[in-house]
Write a protein that binds this DNA or RNA. Structure first.
Lengths: 207, 207
DNA sequence: TCGGACATAGCATCTTTATGCTATTGTGAG
DNA sequence: CTCACAATAGCATAAAGATGCTATGTCCGA
């Protein structure tokens, strides 16, 4: 039987979750509280949940702070955040501190149940709006002011892929000396003087 | 009426999508092809889709290459990847190049339809397994099993910061030859043979 | 039509990196 | 007490990279 924990200060929602999830016969709600502090007070080796649903805006310690502590004390417990916030900073704080999923509070209860199954299967539930935040993080629209020409960007791609000058020359069907020339220009434009710095800049999204 | 595009070389799946999605009266499948090349050949201002579902493993140009071109030519078109790959590198390639969502091919057809609605509402559909990859990216994993010794990690830090062997040697107050020796060991352990690859691995969180 | 950016290419030179060896010392597991 | 391994260091050599010059051709905007 899968043990669930709920940390939620909206009493109505908390009881709804308790009731609906407790009703399923695959689960058992071993802990249901309205603050991280209370959770820590009553958790034991017996009732330690496998999966916790935790709010973020909580009285006392925030859900993010709680997340850090929970993941420290119980690294194997999966914590899914359940929050009204779709603010990027909060989302990334949660993800960087070990959340296994992030749901908005407007998620229908059936989807919340589904999310628990997803976590159990090793996936991560994520509300579409949250996923959008994450995707926006990876795809910064700010490539408009890159000082590099298209050809130069291709050269950089090669560097980032770990190719040697020779390999880049072959791949682009140009001479080794031309690759050198491009790289000279790239270094000048980016104000660097080694391959390593170009790769670093590229991975930081600074190109 | 929302215009949909499909790029998928699995004929069975392609037809299923065409049929199921075309059946909905909110949509219209204006383009359905089995390669990016064909898409580009027949796309016009009239039939240009609002949302494209694209496979990644395609004959000719890959879906990732296609994605780059599509987002370049039609920046306002949302592209959702539909792929069997849950490999991190491929997922991040897609996200970094402008994909608006990423679904695994085992996604039920009803969920795929739902995904289109999600995109329309400004969200991003993402299969739970893909979301897990993304979350793992943010969450500094329990890499207790990193094969590198603490000293070796310091050397890697230096490389990632763009330092030369000489600079690393000075910084750590050891000889140039010792730096060389460490780097030899690092390369062996990580199974690479250039500074560039180490930096790349490090930025990908693989160290 | 002139200057500038881009892409191409060559030559020369010097530095850095990659990799082949060997060798000493300290430390912790068995 | 060995044995393994981390950390240190040296020597040697070949390959790759960084950078100094020059030069041709295209294309675009002033």
């Amino acid at each position: 039987m899968l043990k669930l924990g709920i940390i939620e200060d909206d009493l109505e929602l908390k009881e709804l979750l308790e009731m609906y999830l407790g009703m399923q016969n695959e689960y058992e709600c071993t802990i249901s509280v309205d603050s991280v502090e209370k959770f820590l007070k009553i958790v034991t080796n017996e009732n330690k949940p496998d999966i916790i649903l935790s709010d973020i805006g909580l009285p006392g310690m925030s859900g993010i702070e709680g997340l850090k502590i929970l993941k420290e004390k119980f690294p194997d417990t999966e914590v899914v955040m359940l929050s009204v916030h779709d603010d990027s900073q909060i989302v990334f704080d949660a993800l960087c501190n070990g959340a296994s999923g992030y749901l908005l509070k407007n998620t229908p209860i059936e989807k919340i149940k589904e999310s628990i199954d997803i976590v159990q299967r090793g996936g991560s539930p994520m509300s579409p709006n949250i996923a959008r935040r994450v995707i926006d993080f990876f795809n910064p629209r700010k490539k408009l002011d890159s000082p590099l020409s298209p050809r130069e960007k291709e050269i950089v791609e090669g560097l980032v892929d770990g190719l040697s000058y020779k390999m880049i020359a072959d791949k682009l069907s140009i001479s080794l000396d031309t690759v050198r020339q491009h790289i000279r220009n790239i270094y000048r434009k980016l104000n660097v003087n080694s391959k390593a710095e170009v790769i670093a800049k590229s991975y930081r999204g600074e190109i």
